[in-house]
């Protein structure tokens, strides 16, 4: 793919091949045109969500619902700022959080987001995904794009992935009895398309690409933000940083945040639940074995 600066944007040279703006046929490797990346099996893909440019338009939420044919849920109003979506669920795979920080005086307001922090939350597609490590049926698996997907023809709704996820993402739908979460648009990736949310994001707050690329892009963006006076910016889910602690390593879908993780409803230092399997099993067995030895002593006593 030849990347060139076209009209100030780093776009693929291929855009010149398509002067029309409406298409009656799918374009081969469309993501090259929309995200500057060719999607090929065997590589790692993910999202870099830069919250400093999010305007809270919820285009990502809508695009996700549309493409994935997800019904509206969480009906009603929450009263919590403009967030009536509430949380990620079996039927909601993108969730825009709204944090109003209006206590500061106007002169102290940050030069972006007008002291509203907005963040489009999504499944993190963890490098070492706890949901997948917990799944006893193998329904949850790593795809050829290094994303984490629930295979609907295998999941039996045991629900064990739900408490395993350190971010409260994956959810059971009691109606169809299966676990659901963001698939990073598995079907679109197979067709060479950029995921629906990233494609629809008008500010490029959600960027889709190869994880290594995105991490570099994020590092540059961070440097820039620090240089222009946003020292609070940091990456959540970058290798071994906040959000990728305790053996998760890194998150394929990571974020640039400007306040503490908890403000965005994210844990600062999540753990990898499977690390607790061995210590727990061994301690339990030791207790039973010890008591069994006591039983041997008791039983072999003559009376």
């Amino acid at each position: 793919m030849g990347a060139a600066m076209i009209a100030g944007l780093p776009l693929s040279n291929r855009v010149r091949d398509y002067p029309e703006s409406e298409f009656r046929h799918p374009l081969p490797h469309e993501a090259e045109l929309t995200a500057g990346v060719r999607i090929e099996p065997g590589r790692s893909y993910g999202f870099f969500t830069d919250t400093t440019v999010c305007i809270g338009c919820k285009a990502c939420e809508v695009a996700c619902k549309e493409w994935n044919n997800l019904p509206a849920d969480n009906l009603g109003l929450t009263g919590d700022s403009y967030d009536n979506t509430g949380h990620l669920s079996a039927n909601t795979w993108r969730h825009v959080a709204f944090i109003e920080q209006m206590a500061d005086r106007p002169t102290e307001m940050r030069p972006f987001q007008s002291n509203w922090l907005m963040m489009s939350d999504v499944c993190k597609h963890c490098h070492n995904p706890p949901c997948m490590e917990a799944c006893p049926t193998g329904a949850l698996f790593k795809t050829e794009f290094d994303t984490v997907v629930v295979q609907q023809d295998i999941c039996n709704g045991c629900g064990y992935c739900v408490p395993a996820c350190p971010f409260g993402v994956v959810d059971l739908n009691p109606l169809d009895g299966k676990a659901h979460k963001c698939t990073l648009c598995y079907d679109r990736l197979k067709g060479g398309l950029e995921p629906a949310c990233a494609k629809s994001c008008p500010t490029d707050s959600i960027q889709f690409g190869e994880v290594a690329d995105l991490q570099q892009r994020a590092a540059k963006r961070l440097e820039h933000l620090h240089a222009v006076g946003v020292p609070s910016a940091y990456l959540y889910g970058a290798p071994d940083g906040p959000g990728a602690t305790g053996g998760l390593k890194y998150l394929n879908a990571f974020f640039l945040l400007t306040d503490r993780p908890e403000v965005y409803n994210l844990p600062e230092a999540p753990t990898r639940p499977s690390d607790r399997v061995a210590p727990s099993l061994l301690s339990g067995l030791a207790a039973v074995a010890g008591l069994a030895v006591a039983a041997v002593a008791l039983f072999s006593r003559r009376d």
Binding site: P136, T137, G138, C155, Y160, S274
Partner: peptide, 22 residues
């Protein structure tokens, strides 16, 4: 299970990271 008719899928794999599989 929320889809009980698929209980046998538990026997598809053995996963040492999952106590439910163990």
């Amino acid at each position: 299970l929320h889809t009980p008719k698929r209980f046998y899928n538990m026997l598809r794999i053995a996963r040492p990271t999952s106590p439910m599989s163990i």
